[in-house]
Simulated assay, not measured.
Amino acid sequence: MTRIPSKDEILAWISENPTLTSKRDIAKAFAIKGSDRIDLKRILRELEAEGHLTKRKKTYRDPDKLPPVAVLEVSEISPDGDLFARAREWQGEGESPRILFVAKPGDPALKEGDRILCRMTEVDGDDYSYEARLIRRIGQTAHRILGVFRKGAEGGRVVPIDKGADKEWMVPDGATDGAKDGELVEAQQTGAKPRMGLPRARIVARLGDPGAPRAVSLIAIHQHGIPDDFPDQVIAEADAMKPAGLKGREDLRHLPLVTIDPADARDHDDACYAHADDSPNNPGGFVIWVAIADVAHYVTPGSALDREARRRGNSTYFPDRVVPMLPDRLSGDLC
């Protein structure tokens, strides 16, 4: 009679061989054949009932560990530009482990919400437990829409603001996030899109009155994913800045520089001054001075401000607001 391995031996095998975890693999590893497989099946069921293993289709694994290949969702991009992800399926205790995505040359650019199939490696990182390497990108997460919430007897519906959207979205009671009738909201699809009837969604963000003057800008900002707030680290770095001194600089404050900004402007354009050139090499010519802010004095390479400015790329202007590339302490004061 074949010796049936103990529970500890089975768990040790699965831990050491995460890609060989089917009942057939385990039976082969311990040379279990014929009717003895019935006892193996019983032990595996007991381990599953005790919470030591979880069954996925025809394989077994430790529920508190991720499989060697997993579907992930990009969950955040750190101020340093690192991508972190979460497992789409997690059956262990506590929160899903944090996963660092390790890109290789040729990988596509990823953003928050992308779903990816990755090979997993368990590591002992400072703030993450796994590293993931891309096999392929498999698409984005559930579809999101921006629209006006209309309250109903059992939840409500979202009327999309996009002219090309021809369907409203049904929001069940308990998925409204407290939205009021007529509010501008962002909703996310829940479940598969039905063949008939309205798609179902839940409210994920409440954005206020769509009729307010700021609505147009808010809609544009939201739909195009323009970042309109700054991470705490960036704000703290900007707030700690002091006005640049004159040390190592030439004082040109005697020049009558002018700008074309209104009197109440805080974000000034370049200042200019022109005067006749007295050089004999430039008869009838002029000298033009152009004064610009010394942004590089405040935004140093590799700083939190530098990383955030690179992520944004530029300031974005709307009729009623500006989404700046740098925090107000710099864009509206020191610079």
Rank of each mutant, 00 (worst) to 15 (best):
G178N: 06
G156A: 10
A201N: 07
G164S: 15
R195C: 00
A201E: 06
K167S: 09
G152N: 06
E183T: 01
E183I: 01
D173K: 15
P172R: 15
A165T: 11
R200M: 11
G164H: 13
G191E: 09
D177Q: 10
A192K: 09
P160D: 02
A192V: 01
A192I: 01
K163E: 15
K163M: 10
A153C: 01
R200V: 07
D162A: 15
M170A: 12
L184R: 00
M196L: 14
M170Y: 13
G152C: 02
E154N: 14
K180D: 09
P194D: 03
D173R: 15
G156Q: 12
G156P: 05
K163R: 14
V171D: 02
K163S: 13
G164V: 13
D162S: 15
G152S: 12
A153H: 12
G182D: 08
P160Q: 04
A153I: 09
K180G: 06
L184M: 07
G197P: 02
G182T: 10
D177E: 12
A201Q: 03
V185L: 06
K167V: 05
G152P: 00
K167N: 03
A201R: 05
E183S: 00
G191F: 08
V158R: 06
P199V: 03
P199E: 05
A187I: 00
A175M: 14
G178R: 05
T190G: 03
P199Y: 05
M196V: 08
G152M: 09
V185R: 01
K180W: 01
V159K: 11
A201C: 10
G155D: 11
T176G: 01
A179S: 11
L184G: 00
G152F: 04
A175E: 14
L198T: 03
R195H: 04
E186P: 00
A153M: 11
G182H: 03
E154W: 08
G178H: 08
A175S: 13
K193D: 06
D177K: 13
A192L: 07
A192Q: 04
E154I: 13
D173G: 11
A187E: 03
G197L: 07
G182F: 06
T190Q: 14
T190R: 09
P199N: 09
G197Q: 10
A179K: 00
G174L: 04
G164Y: 12
R195D: 12
M170R: 09
E168G: 06
G178T: 06
P172I: 11
K193H: 08
R157A: 11
A165H: 08
K167D: 02
K151A: 15
G197A: 07
P172E: 15
P160K: 04
A187D: 01
D162W: 04
K163I: 08
D162I: 03
G156T: 09
K180C: 05
A165S: 14
A187T: 03
